Computed example of a mutant assay.
Amino acid sequence: MRLNVVDVEATCWDGEPPPGTVSEIIEIGLTVVDLGSRERISRHRILVRPSRSTVSAFCTELTGLTQAEVDTGVGFAEACGILAAEHAAGSRPWASWGDYDRHQFTRQCGATGTAYPFGNRHTNAKAVFTQAHGLRKRPGMAQALRVAGLPLEGRHHRGEDDAWNIAALILDLAARRAWPMT
Rank of each mutant, 00 (worst) to 15 (best):
G29Q: 07
E160Q: 15
R45F: 06
F105G: 01
L173S: 09
H103A: 14
G154N: 06
L65H: 02
V6R: 03
G15A: 09
D101P: 08
P151C: 07
W13H: 11
T66V: 12
R176M: 15
G113V: 10
V55R: 05
G159A: 14
I170R: 04
G15W: 12
W94N: 03
L35V: 09
L171R: 07
D101Q: 07
S51D: 08
D101T: 05
C80R: 01
R38T: 09
D7C: 07
W179P: 02
G90M: 09
A174D: 15
D34H: 08
R121S: 13
R40N: 12
E160H: 07
L145F: 10
T106S: 11
C12H: 02
R146Y: 04
S51E: 14
P151K: 05
L3F: 10
M181P: 00
T66A: 09
T60W: 12
Q131V: 14
T106L: 14
A175K: 15
S37W: 06
T31M: 14
G75E: 12
R43Q: 14
L35D: 03
R40H: 02
T130H: 01
Y100S: 07
R102E: 11
E27H: 01
A175N: 11
C12W: 09
H122Y: 10
P19K: 05
P180H: 00
S42L: 07
